[in-house]
Amino acid sequence: MKRFLSALRRLLPQLAALGIILLLNAMISPGFFHVEMQNGRLYGSLIDVINRGAPVALLAIGMTLVIATKGIDLSVGAVMAITGAVAASLITQGYPLVATLGGTLAVGLFCGLWNGALVALLDIQPIIATLILMVAGRGIAQLITEGIILTFNDKPDLIFVGSGAFLGLPMPFIIWFVMAILMVTIVRRTALGLLIEAIGVNRRASTLSGVGSRSLLFAVYATSGLCAAIAGIIAAADIKGADANNAGLWLELDAILAVVIGGNSLLGGRFSIAGSLIGAMIMQSVNTGILLSGFPPEFNLIIKAVIILIILVVQSPTSQSLWTFLRRDRHPTAKQERAVR
């Protein structure tokens, strides 16, 4: 309980930012917080946020781990396109749902292992290594769909993954939430979290302490590929078709932003999956708010950029230390702690 509270305190800036954005949305669009049951599912703008934010939330889970190792995965958007195409292709060829999902996840895993091999075995810089698949990925996806939007209007079981509801909640939300709990449990209940943070801070020193840095790097990139595959399935199932040109387009950047807004450092080390997920929800709240606002679309990107800029400025080390400075008299213990060196 104590540790839960301290985790909550660490995430306070992110939670506050999310709260403020949501309040702003409510001011722009009075019915924002209104949620009702409709056709056996919850319905409202808040539900849209957790539903539409699913792809970025899923990507952010994998991206958090990759960034914690001082890496980056630019290929996740392209992997979404590939896996969406694979899923659509398998299901339209008549494979059952389980085989389709299994095959698609395997492809995502393979994409991640490819990145992992370039980074861990060949020591190629992550940004370059993953750029390869980012560039090639959409081409591969188009080869699979043969240049068309591969639709599957008559496959309700796969469509359910993208737009169905369970216990009134949209499936995409349930999937990312379960995935998040699973991943947090895996990294925090085992030693993976510690070892990932260690190689992110100092890979050489960790290797010299006997940490299997290579297999860990493989594992985080594979996880990122897997998360991208799930996001790809959701994106395809949502529109009942695989759009190789547009599925996941630029979402790698949204995922990186979500991780950073979530308070994680691009320099690796300490990470918080929960923080990244809050970051993803902040991003989606901004998007939804803009759509509800009725501003002309020419302003979309500017508004988004300004809001993100404000959040990052408030979180920046300089303004954080300014904050500490302003509160110094009330917190003498913090000062003492810094004095010990």
Binding site: R52, I149, G241, D243, N287, T288, G294, N300
Partner: peptide, 23 residues
């Protein structure tokens, strides 16, 4: 009454329409 970009894609078309309906 409302005009917003959907980037010519299905995904965005769906998302923007959802917000139109709510608004």
């Amino acid at each position: 009454v409302r005009s917003q970009t959907g980037d010519f894609t299905r995904t965005k078309g769906k998302e923007v329409m959802e917000s139109f309906i709510k608004a």
